[in-house]
């Protein structure tokens, strides 16, 4: 077998790929579900924290800032490992899926809160004053005047951050989640051939290249024009 042939046999073995395609496809589905759950929960929790923070209650805000800093500073894998291997010591067992979902949700929540908050504070004070001078209340002003402007400028950084964090779903493989990486790793050990891993890599590209391109497009499209 020549070098190139052996390369093809190892990494692009169509027979192996065909055999394990269903397994990796299942992993693909799991990755998508996990990613959607993380995005939905992380972004809404982050927005909730940013709104609560805008009330300006000092002690509460210190708490929010600490939680946000904590989950920005900790590597996601450390949180996953802590939840999955640590919690059983307290008598709580969580599945690998739940540990991965919760960890990445908390991380996305923290980054999203920070971005939303920067967006809210970037809206000029005059907008608040104008709205309040017409009799709108605090929450009405926040919801109708400030947030629409804040969300718009947060779209590019938020999109990029969300993409980066959802890619962390691959970390689930460490705690036995059969998402794309987990599925293709077990396929690789069954078949003693890394073609399944190639298949996994292709699955990630199919999933994330459009998303990365979307992020790039969003960055130019939502440049704030006044």
């Amino acid at each position: 077998m020549g070098g190139f042939e052996s390369f093809l046999f190892s990494f692009f073995n169509l027979k192996v790929m065909a055999t394990y395609l269903p397994l990796v496809a299942k992993g693909f589905g799991l990755t998508v579900v996990l990613a959607l759950l993380i995005v939905a929960c992380g972004l809404s929790l982050g927005l909730l924290l940013a709104v609560v923070r805008s009330f300006g209650l000092r002690v509460l805000n210190w708490g929010i800032i600490f939680v946000v800093d904590l989950f920005r500073a900790l590597p996601p894998l450390v949180i996953i490992v802590l939840l999955f291997f640590g919690l059983p010591a307290a008598g709580i067992t969580v599945s690998g899926f739940a540990a991965t979902w919760l960890s990445l949700t908390l991380v996305l929540m923290a980054f999203a809160e920070e971005i939303y908050w920067a967006g809210i504070t970037a809206v000029p004070k005059g907008q608040w004053e104008a709205a309040r001078s017409t009799g709108l209340g605090f929450l009405q002003t926040l919801r109708l005047v400030v947030l629409p402007q804040a969300l718009r400028i947060t779209i590019p950084p938020l999109t990029n951050r969300t993409i980066a964090i959802t890619k962390g779903t691959a970390l689930g493989s460490v705690v036995g989640v059969a998402e794309i990486l987990g599925a293709s790793q077990s396929a690789m050990s069954f078949s003693a051939n890394p073609s399944a891993l190639t298949l996994g890599a292709i699955a990630y590209l199919i999933l994330f290249i459009p998303v990365v391109a979307l992020g790039r497009w969003v960055e130019t499209r939502f440049a704030w024009k006044r």
């Binding site: 005059g126 104008a130 017409t134 009799g135 009405q140 109708l144």
Partner: peptide, 25 residues
């Protein structure tokens, strides 16, 4: 109140700017 820097809501049309408080207040 009328401000030096206008403070119109940039994400709303002129008419929506005027309508907001009429509807919500």
């Amino acid at each position: 109140m009328v401000f030096q820097s206008f403070n119109l809501y940039p994400h709303m049309t002129a008419r929506q700017n005027v309508m907001l408080a009429l509807r919500k207040v």
